[in-house]
Design a protein around this nucleic acid. Sequence first.
DNA 1: GTATAAAGTTAAGCCCGCTTAACTAGAAAG
DNA 2: CTTTCTAGTTAAGCGGGCTTAACTTTATAC
Lengths: 149, 149
Amino acid sequence: MNDNSQATTQLIREWMELFTTRSMHDSWRYVKAVNLSMPQFSILMRLYYHGQCGIADMSERMEITAAGASQLVERLVQSGLVRRAEDPHDRRARQLTLTESGREVIERGIDERYKWVKRLVSTLSEEQRAEVLRVLPMLVETARGLQEK
Amino acid sequence: MNDNSQATTQLIREWMELFTTRSMHDSWRYVKAVNLSMPQFSILMRLYYHGQCGIADMSERMEITAAGASQLVERLVQSGLVRRAEDPHDRRARQLTLTESGREVIERGIDERYKWVKRLVSTLSEEQRAEVLRVLPMLVETARGLQEK
DNA sequence: GTATAAAGTTAAGCCCGCTTAACTAGAAAG
DNA sequence: CTTTCTAGTTAAGCGGGCTTAACTTTATAC
């Protein structure tokens, strides 16, 4: 490995260290502010990004028991952030989706979390932005590819 | 705002979203695996990145009461991950530091979390890596500047 | 030197996440 | 049609995070 792999890895790590720390902290503050727990928030996020799913999927994804997932979801249904409908094709199963207000909570959270990105971008020159636009999509694509499996 | 700011912001957000989601998920798994809670882990992280501090600093940073911080630290001292010494200059205060095993836990956690960065980089071509190396440092620099204040 | 403020600790108590175990209801298999 | 499997719920119970309130100990101000 005497190519540029090492340097690239190091660079991306630095970037992540700078920002995931920050991002996680901001998330945490927001979550507290809207009176949710982190697990509850994860469920909303999951529904926001991956759409409808059932209790079983959710419990698998979060690596908790179905019982735990069921209770977590129950609280979110109570607070009106999640809709829990019966699956018409399998009446044992549930279809979980975000309600309008659930979606709002998540979207405000994302905005909050990434306010600083706007600030960051505004301090870049037009050329620098162009560079970012040229290079970053490739990284995003690749990362997304890895995510799949 | 009819330049490329909007697109750039959007792009960086997407990128960050991918990374933080992934990073948080991995952290969570690791934390469970080593039998810690997330707040406990945050304390270790703080100590790792910012070095020694007292209960008061800790409670301020984590936005919890001093009582809460004290209890959290107590558990970490019990499990041998944190050292709690008396400050020689102010005997009311404590000096919190990581023990060797605390440091190990964190370092293994970081490695774990960034394993997939290596995978990501390894699927990039040499040219792609060169591009990243050319563009990302500028982002990191700018971001660090913003962080300061 | 006494009053006051600051750093931590301890205990009581609440809420939540999560687990196991026992259950209900519906689907699939024979 | 009965057996077996699957999706989800409910209850009991543990343990942790966090808060408030009541301390103890040490430093600072007057």
